[in-house]
Design a protein around this nucleic acid. Sequence first.
DNA 1: CGGTATCCATTCGGATACTG
DNA 2: CAGTATCCGAATGGATACCG
Lengths: 113, 113
Amino acid sequence: MLEYKDKHYYCPVELTMDLVGGKWKGVIIWYLKDSTMRYNELKKKITTISEKVLIKELRSLESDGIVSRKVYPEVPPKVEYSLTPYGKTLIPIFELISKWGNKHVELYGTLKE
Amino acid sequence: MLEYKDKHYYCPVELTMDLVGGKWKGVIIWYLKDSTMRYNELKKKITTISEKVLIKELRSLESDGIVSRKVYPEVPPKVEYSLTPYGKTLIPIFELISKWGNKHVELYGTLKE
DNA sequence: CGGTATCCATTCGGATACTG
DNA sequence: CAGTATCCGAATGGATACCG
């Protein structure tokens, strides 16, 4: 039995999926893979996510040490999100996931404009 | 823009996470990695999943060609679940995920009995 | 044994309005 | 710009009982 942040998991796959699984976290990590992004940039890229959910996912990733949030004390405000060095250890995983998804579309899906 | 089963995705990571992400699918795939399992075996292994959710996830994985369901016409009934050859192409991904989870526990979590 | 059906509480998630 | 606050319907998830 594994324990992290007062939650119990019986296998490491379950734990990882709890931290970076779900509908959006992988996509966020994927966008931050090679560049820092501002809040609004992410929002524009991931058009189908709501603001509420985006900020919730970012906070969650931040609290697990995967994403870092840097605030510039300017007006208008500027906040940049990026992967921490620890978050970057996830990149190989999402590289495989991305490749698998591409292949899946080739085999069973379609590409639209 | 990607399309699969009438759903739209704007990146392959999103698609893959939709198919095998979520709280339970990874764990199910992980258990089926090296052996066929009966419904009740899975239920006993993944103690914290409800029957309803387990069957829903299995059906979903089946409909995406990842898991196959074999019914033996016996009394009492016997149903075996296993990974299809296509489902096995996911194993390298979950191997990385499992390793990452183990490391995460070493660094930030604890191991209980 | 391998599921369904049902009920119900909780959470998720989208839309919109507002603020420092 | 980068969020918060609020409303509210939809979807999820657990527990239990029941069935072929």
